[in-house]
Design a protein around this nucleic acid. Sequence first.
DNA 1: AAATTGACGGGTG
DNA 2: CCACCCGCCAATT
Length: 104
Amino acid sequence: MTPFTMRVIEIIRSIPEGAVMTYGQIAELAGSRRGARQVVRILHSSSRKYGLPWHRVVNSKGEIALQDEEGRRMQAMYLRDEGVPVDDRGRVDLPARQYIPGPD
DNA sequence: AAATTGACGGGTG
DNA sequence: CCACCCGCCAATT
């Protein structure tokens, strides 16, 4: 596993309940400013295996990005369960909910 | 080895 | 807001 992948996994692990991060933001924090698509790939291959809170990752517009209808419903349900409002178009209030890690 | 493929993102109109 | 277009980049074809 590449260092980048490891960092991505750690970052996703660090997203608090009730908050979200975007693909691009995660990629950038992990050291690849244009690696958003790699974050997608990693979620596909590792979210189940490592028990990641994959539902806390949305796109830069604050939308659920999953294509599969079933998956979209699951993600919206998980988010609402932890107190994040999701509208009928699958969007969350990004400015209000985006997790920005401190400089630690 | 070349083309295709995304749970993306920013810019433009 | 919406629709496009184009850059991105590693895994799969």
